[in-house]
Simulated assay, not measured.
Amino acid sequence: MTVRQRSVIDIRLLGKVELYVEGRQLDVGTPRQQAVWATLVVDVGRLSPSRHSS
């Protein structure tokens, strides 16, 4: 039997985008990657369109 534990995730969007898992700060990447994080967090539960370049 496998027991899964849930992690505490804290995402801060006001000012600098920051991500903490179990109190440890993780790198959220470049400004562009930070914008993606912010968009996904704000739109939780909604489908996000993807852009495909041909």
Results as ranks from 00 to 15, higher is better:
18 E>M: 07
33 Q>A: 11
36 V>D: 06
22 E>T: 00
7 S>P: 06
25 Q>W: 01
52 H>S: 14
34 Q>M: 06
30 T>E: 07
1 M>S: 15
50 S>F: 14
24 R>H: 10
35 A>T: 08
44 V>Q: 11
4 R>C: 10
24 R>F: 07
20 Y>W: 11
53 S>R: 13
30 T>F: 04
6 R>A: 15
11 I>V: 11
9 I>C: 05
3 V>I: 15
16 K>M: 10
37 W>I: 08
12 R>H: 09
18 E>N: 03
28 V>L: 05
2 T>K: 14
44 V>H: 09
13 L>Y: 03
9 I>N: 02
39 T>H: 10
38 A>C: 06
17 V>S: 00
42 V>H: 09
21 V>H: 00
14 L>N: 10
40 L>N: 08
10 D>I: 07
5 Q>N: 09
50 S>R: 14
5 Q>R: 13
1 M>H: 13
12 R>P: 03
30 T>V: 05
12 R>E: 05
52 H>T: 11
6 R>S: 15
3 V>W: 11
48 S>V: 15
44 V>W: 13
20 Y>N: 02
26 L>H: 02
3 V>T: 12
29 G>I: 03
41 V>Y: 03
23 G>H: 01
49 P>F: 11
46 R>K: 15
32 R>E: 08
45 G>T: 03
43 D>I: 05
19 L>K: 01
25 Q>N: 08
48 S>H: 12
40 L>H: 10
14 L>F: 11
12 R>A: 02
54 S>K: 08
3 V>H: 12
19 L>H: 00
25 Q>S: 05
43 D>T: 14
34 Q>I: 01
22 E>S: 08
6 R>H: 14
1 M>E: 13
29 G>R: 00
50 S>L: 15
1 M>W: 11
1 M>I: 15
14 L>M: 09
47 L>P: 10
10 D>Y: 02
39 T>L: 15
21 V>A: 04
17 V>T: 07
7 S>D: 13
1 M>Q: 12
33 Q>P: 01
30 T>A: 02
33 Q>E: 10
31 P>H: 04
13 L>A: 03
8 V>I: 08
33 Q>S: 07
23 G>E: 02
10 D>R: 07
35 A>P: 00
26 L>K: 00
28 V>G: 01
